[in-house]
Nucleic acid binder design. Structure first.
Lengths: 131, 131
DNA sequence: GTTTTTGCAAAGTATTTGCAAATGG
DNA sequence: CCATTTGCAAATACTTTGCAAAAAC
């Protein structure tokens, strides 16, 4: 791996992810970044998010509908995606914490990680629907 | 929903999915279909796969790398994706069969389904790597 | 005869890449 | 200075869409 140099854009991307819990898309991060650095480019945001995800400094999460989200929390945890508003939120499932090891036992190969993604309607969208 | 009419292209797509277990992409199905119907278009394949997935006749599965796969088996089961060759295979996890209901208990909204996606190296790629 | 589906091509998304200039160490 | 990163624009990859013709019923 090449030596990494500091960049204020990358720092701002990390800061942005750190201070929110809505699992933003690249475009959402880009919108926020433009408030601070009006000339920042979407390419820079994509380049940095990919770099960080490859080095496991952040998590890249792709939902069923093909939308890519990013998460600052790299600890093993699961997610819920609302079919209606598309929001992704955290989910903590108690009895599936050692799932990776569990799968490894019966698997002929190397199991690196395991993601649980749940879908449906979030509280808000569910209440709206029943009106 | 509008009334559906028969189409030999759609039937061939279903047949193709039914007779394989490698969770193909739209393009893989398209390649096979051209052997039977040389003039079939990729648009038709996408249209039909979307239609079938929306009506829950097949499953649409998106892996971490953003690649969309399709599965004829609509019963609840989980998947493994090889990080090296990209192949998707089935995984049957015994103690996570009622996960959707389990999540529902502690969730303020409506939980429709739940996918477990596991990543690593498949048997073949793992053996190659250790040589 | 009316509705659905098709093939084709064009358009739409999301993401990546080439390159010269700017920045970091 | 040399390596990395940036902004910009163009390119790529994947998927959807508009439309007239064909097929289904």
């Amino acid at each position: 791996m090449q030596k990494r140099k500091f960049s204020k854009q990358r720092e701002a991307i990390i800061e942005n992810l750190k201070n929110r819990c809505d699992h933003p898309t690249a475009d959402m991060v880009y919108s926020d970044l433009r408030q601070i650095y009006p000339n920042v480019s979407l390419g820079t945001v994509y380049r940095n998010l990919s770099l960080l995800a490859e080095n496991n400094e952040i998590k890249k999460l792709v939902s069923d509908d093909g939308v890519t989200h990013f998460d600052y929390n790299i600890k093993s945890h699961d997610h819920f995606v609302c079919r209606k508003c598309g929001a992704m939120s955290d989910l903590h499932i108690i009895n599936c914490e050692n799932l990776t090891e569990e799968i490894s036992k019966n698997f002929d190969g190397y199991v690196e990680k395991c993601d649980i993604m749940s879908y449906g309607l979030c509280k808000n969208c569910y209440n709206q629907e029943s009106n």
